[in-house]
Design a protein around this nucleic acid. Structure first.
Lengths: 187, 187
DNA sequence: ATTCTTTTTTGATTATTATCAAATGGAAAT
DNA sequence: ATTTCCATTTGATAATAATCAAAAAAGAAT
C-alpha cells in the first residue's frame, strides 16, 4: 500500500471501488529543488501530498517573505483560500528539496465529492483535522514565547533543522532569524 | 424566513425537503445572561447559532482566562475540538447578554450527514469557511500590532465596545487590558 | 586551495507589550 | 448620599523580540 493510500485511509475508510477511483485521480510528480507548485496570483488547482522531500508555503507581507507552512513527511498541503474560493493565490508553494509530490485537481475532487458521498465525507473530515490543527497553532502563536515554539518544533520534527534554512524556520515560527539564532545559542 | 434558515442557506442551498428536516433538528433556547452552554471538561454536544445576544468562548491558560472568540450577530460557534473529537472541552462557552440561541446536537448532525449527501456537503462548506477565517486570524495575530488589531475590530464590529467588557476584548485581541486601555486613550 | 556568495551569528539600540501596583471612575445597594 | 464593588485608567519598570549593522562561518565555484 502506498503512503498516500495509507494517509488517505487514515482520515476515513473508503469502500474498495471508490478508493480505487479516488486514488486514480491523484497525479504524481518527481520534482527538482526550487520548483514552484503554486505561483503568486495564479489560482491554486491542487491539493498536494508530499511523499518525500520538502515544500514551503510562503507569502509576502509588507514586502517581506513570510513562511506560512513547511510540509514534509507524508503530509497534505495546499493554498487553502485560493483552492476553495477559486481566487488568485497570495500564497506561493515551492519545493526546497528534490521531492515526490502527488496532487488531485480541484475539478476532479469536486466531481468525486458530488458523485460519492463518502468522498465528500472524506474531505469534510480532512478539513475538520486542518481546522483543529489551526486552532492549536493559533494558541501557540498567541501565547507561547519564541523559545517555547522553537523547542516544540524540535520535539515534533527534529530533522527540520538539518533540512530547512534557519531563515525559513524563523519566519515559520513568527520571529526574525536573529532571534532564532540567539535562542539556539542560549539552549 | 428565519435568520437561522437564511444563514444556513448562505453556506449552500438545500432541497426543500432536506432543508425542512435539517431546520427541524435545531433546538431553540432563550437564555439569560451568564448561562453556560459548554462547561469545562464536558463534551460539547452542539453547534450553536446566536440570533440575538452575545456568547463568549474562553479557556484557561496558565491560570489565566483567555477569551478565544466572541460570537454575536447571527453567527455560528462551537467548541471545535471537543465537538468533533468527542473529548472533554477545554473551552467554555457562556452568554454575556440575554440571548436567543439555536443548537443542533452532534448525533442529529452526524445522522443527517450520513443520510443526506447535501448535509455532508453543507458541513464541509461550513468547515471550509471556518478554516479560511482561521487563516486570516492567524495572520492578523502574528503580524499586526495590537493597535491595528483593535482598529480592525472596531471597523468590523463597532457595537462590540458598548456591549462587551474591556477585559474580554483585550484578551480576545491577545493583549492585556492595560494595553488596550492605553491604545484607546492614544486614539 | 582560494575566491565568491550566502547563511548564520553577534552586538548595540529601540519598540512594543507585559507585569505589578495604585488610583480613579461608575454602577448598584443600602 | 454614602458605601461597596467592579471595571478602567495611569504610572513605573521589566521582558521580549525587532531593527540595523557588521562580523564570522559555511558552502559553492573556479
Amino acid at each position: 500500500m502506498s503512503t498516500l493510500e495509507n494517509r488517505i485511509l487514515q482520515i476515513t475508510p473508503l469502500p474498495e471501488d471508490v478508493k480505487k477511483t479516488f486514488l486514480g485521480k491523484w497525479e504524481k510528480w518527481a520534482m527538482p529543488k526550487d520548483q514552484f507548485l503554486v505561483k503568486e496570483n495564479e489560482t491554486a488547482n491542487y491539493i498536494y501530498y508530499i511523499e518525500k522531500g520538502i515544500a514551503r508555503i510562503f507569502y509576502y507581507k509588507n514586502g517581506k517573505e513570510i513562511t506560512e507552512w513547511i510540509a514534509m513527511d507524508n503530509s497534505f498541503f495546499l493554498s487553502i483560500i485560493s483552492f476553495f474560493e477559486r481566487t488568485p493565490s497570495r500564497l506561493q508553494i515551492h519545493t526546497i528539496e528534490p521531492s515526490v509530490v502527488y496532487g488531485i485537481h480541484y475539478d476532479n475532487l469536486m466531481n468525486l465529492c458530488n458523485e460519492e458521498h463518502c468522498i465528500e465525507r472524506w474531505l469534510r473530515k480532512a478539513l475538520t483535522g486542518s481546522l483543529i490543527l489551526s486552532q492549536y497553532r493559533m494558541d501557540s502563536i498567541q501565547f507561547e514565547s519564541a523559545q517555547q515554539r522553537y523547542e516544540k518544533l524540535l520535539e515534533n520534527n527534529p530533522s527540520i533543522i538539518q533540512r530547512v534554512p534557519l531563515s525559513y524556520i524563523a519566519s515559520f515560527l513568527g520571529i526574525t532569524q536573529e532571534t532564532l539564532s540567539r535562542i539556539r545559542s542560549n539552549l
